[in-house]
Design a protein around this nucleic acid. Structure first.
Lengths: 214, 214
DNA sequence: TAGATTGTTAATCGATTAACAATC
DNA sequence: TAGATTGTTAATCGATTAACAATC
């Protein structure tokens, strides 16, 4: 397998989807698939699929196609699904709690190890068998555990202070649900943003625009 | 203002961000801004900003720049922020409840009018002053209210049945948190997907890849 | 009027699609 | 060997960036 870097964001963003579809095919007992069959199912072009996979080296065989199980494993390995990176949640409000409860971290390459909040009233609360800790305990916690990543479900106003503290503790990767722009202050941090507000407004645009088109 | 259609997805996805930044500038009491000042703040190029705005017609003035309040209002209007589309939530699990409580729908162009679930035990539960209704009441409800959109916080397996029912009730726009591919079955539906699982796996890829680069 | 900055056209860059030779 | 389908190169398409004339 090639160990290429500089893979474009567009390609990377398709990897989880490939992984998911291949899992479904596997569940259906399908052993092999061609790029054109897969393209039909996923709504992509066969060309794009072959291009995407070849960024990481050849996973297929001419005249045969791709072995579903093998391909899925390869993509999983590229993503790093088997690392189970230690991750903590910072901000145990509505959204934070739901994220902790709703997602199957173990299947997505992570292990949720701690939940923090700065609201005394939430400290001790049990979420998925993890007791909420006060954010002031973060130093002590990180000396023992050293998480790789943090989920930020905090208000934008707390963004800089909290992130700065976490980076100090050795955490460099962030799943960011706030509007705080991490990379502006910390250009080296690895950041995946989820901007729900923007997403909702995009839906609004599309409704407005489709009505205007009538 | 031009009433252009066929605006590219890339441009549309930047509109909420423009709107947000302009709101911040307004709060800071800034009256006018040039494309190059705005590009500095937002991490875009001045060229892109001018191109983006000009898809919708000229909002600026040569030699002056853009009036912040005016520009913000124009973009808000393009998005349709002032429509307050009626929206319902389907699926009152952890994630659904958090979405209902966490977001300020009114500021994003919507009004949350109903919450539905098919789990009897959740019926009657109060979330943000809305009592959860059983999904079997959806017909009756929609005859009175006619929502424009639905938030889907349901398992993928329920996707087709639920969506089909909602479309039957006249709902054509979806904020979709499930992995169910709405447009495959209903190509005309307006869909905004939020795939948290894929987002988390993308973070995983970026961590794995940055480590490999060391 | 001179300076600033837009609106818009042209150039560049990157991603997607098409084509086909290599090969299982 | 013949058929199928990949891996890969070339063509196309679209989005971003640069340049500059228009104009406030």
């Amino acid at each position: 397998m090639k160990n290429e870097h500089n893979i474009s964001k567009s390609v990377i963003s398709r990897l989880p989807r490939y992984y998911r579809f291949l899992g479904m095919l596997l569940d259906e007992g399908i052993e092999r698939i061609s790029s054109s069959e897969l393209s039909d199912k996923m709504g992509l072009t066969a060309s794009q699929i072959r291009q995407d996979f070849n960024h990481f080296g050849g996973f297929g065989q001419q005249g045969y196609g791709y072995n579903v199980a093998q391909l899925r494993q390869n993509i999983g390995h590229i993503i790093g699904i088997d690392h189970y990176y230690k991750i903590i949640l910072v901000g145990a409000g509505n959204l934070g709690r739901a994220i902790a409860q709703h997602l199957d971290f173990h299947k997505k390459g992570f292990e949720l190890d701690g939940i923090f909040d700065s609201d005394e009233r939430l400290v001790g609360l049990d979420i998925n068998n993890l007791a909420v800790r006060h954010f002031s305990d973060i130093d002590t916690f990180c000396k023992n555990i050293t998480p790789a990543a943090a989920i930020l479900c905090i208000p934008e106003s707390a963004g800089k202070e909290v992130t700065s503290k976490l980076i100090e503790c050795g955490i460099n990767s962030f799943w960011n649900f706030s509007h705080y722009n991490i990379n502006e202050d910390f250009p080296d941090a690895i950041v995946e943003n989820v901007h729900l507000n923007d997403s909702l407004m995009t839906l609004c645009y599309n409704i407005t625009n489709s009505e205007a088109a009538k």
